[in-house]
Design a protein around this nucleic acid. Structure first.
Lengths: 229, 229
DNA sequence: ACCTGAACACCGTTCAAGT
DNA sequence: ACCTGAACACCGTTCAAGT
């Protein structure tokens, strides 16, 4: 009944999901595992190695099944899967930013995104750039959602909710003019998936304009010239 | 010669800029200030209050002078200022994510962005959503740049640079196909401002399509009907 | 092979007591 | 008013020593 590497990893993921990233310490993890803190270091070189492994688990299996449709729909689907994967785990977005070097799962996703983007006919550099824009958006979105979730968990929600009342109408007319229901929806994350889709489609539309063959006319389907075989 | 609140703040910003966010501890700051750690707590309630104050300094004066041009050019200019402000300070983007509640400077920027976006004629909700997309992009961009800067500072640059050699050409064909010079440029951040502008314009183009009055025809200037007074 | 015990060099925060 | 000294409850990491 010695501790296995996988048990440590599972324990760490469970601790993260239950208590949050700030509570994920080597000593608390050890306690959960019923072991001394030093014992973890037999299975993982250091905390960073453990975090890297956790990130890989979080991002596992995201490229399967291969996304269908046109290139932009493929990209959109991959982004939705990334967002969902990070949202599944408490503080998943913050965890993702702690990578020092990308593991195979991260690389597979990047590769899949690049493959889809390349189909829109742009240079290697433009493909790289487009991919990074999309990545920033997804990470920012999930980070934001999970930040308000964390505030909720820490009882700071009343403070966040009362923000509008603190806005001086003279100094912040536009923000003050936003209706309470609109603001409340956003703060409580009830518009989350619609908002995500809005931004995703906006960025994709913008990227289409820079692609070679797809700006004004809709992409044509492959003509069926191969009827005779 | 008692320590002033501003001296603590300046000391904290200097320490951050010289040593990075991980080195910004209350105890190290106290040592720099020539004081005991407990002394800081007379000037700031806790570390979070100090961080909040630092963020406000970082984001000071960004809405002046008021950006000129059409709404999209105004938004672009505000985003450039935000990116520049965070890049000016070591780990500025990471610092920005540590806000619990936005200060007046943060709110002013948000208000200015919303004011500009509103000119494109969209609903309050669409304005809010558009603003968040842009914010995510800027934050992600600076975070990414400063992350590779931090890696450079910690001597991990050889590891990052050698990433391509570790890519299996069969498993990651697209990423492997990117030329060494293109990749190197990106890793070393030499394409930084061009890349930032690319993403910014792409997002703005995408957002224009969802605006009411500005999709196909360029926005008209206000007709001069008020000649007679 | 796998873990304990104990240490090392740190953290943020509090607070009586000093000046 | 402003700070010290000292404590409290924590960190990540190392490593001889145990089994």
């Amino acid at each position: 009944m010695p501790l296995s590497r996988d048990e440590v990893l599972e324990g760490a993921l469970a601790l993260l999901d239950n208590e949050g990233l700030d509570a994920l310490t080597m000593r608390r993890l050890a306690k959960v595992l019923g072991v001394q803190a030093g014992a973890i270091y037999w299975h993982f070189a250091d905390k960073q190695a453990l975090l890297d492994a956790m990130i890989e688990v979080m991002l596992a299996g995201l490229v399967e099944p291969a996304p269908k449709g046109k290139w932009d729909e493929q990209v959109a689907e991959l982004m939705r899967r990334m967002a969902a994967a990070m949202l599944r785990l408490r503080d998943g977005a913050r965890l993702a930013t702690l990578t020092v070097r990308p593991g195979p799962n991260s690389l597979q996703i990047a590769e899949a995104v690049m493959q889809a983007l390349q189909k829109s006919g742009r240079s290697a550099q433009a493909t790289l750039w487009a991919g990074s824009v999309l990545g920033y958006y997804v990470l920012g979105y999930v980070t934001d959602l999970q930040a308000t979730e964390a505030a909720k968990a820490r009882g700071l929600m009343s403070a966040v909710r009362g923000l509008r009342d603190m806005l001086d109408p003279e100094q912040y007319p536009v923000m003050y003019g936003i209706s309470d229901t609109t603001l409340k929806q956003m703060i409580e994350g009830r518009d989350a998936s619609a908002r995500f889709e809005f931004g995703l489609q906006a960025i994709l539309r913008g990227l289409k304009a820079t692609a070679r063959g797809s700006s004004p006319t809709p992409a044509r389907r492959r003509p069926r010239t191969t009827r005779r075989r």
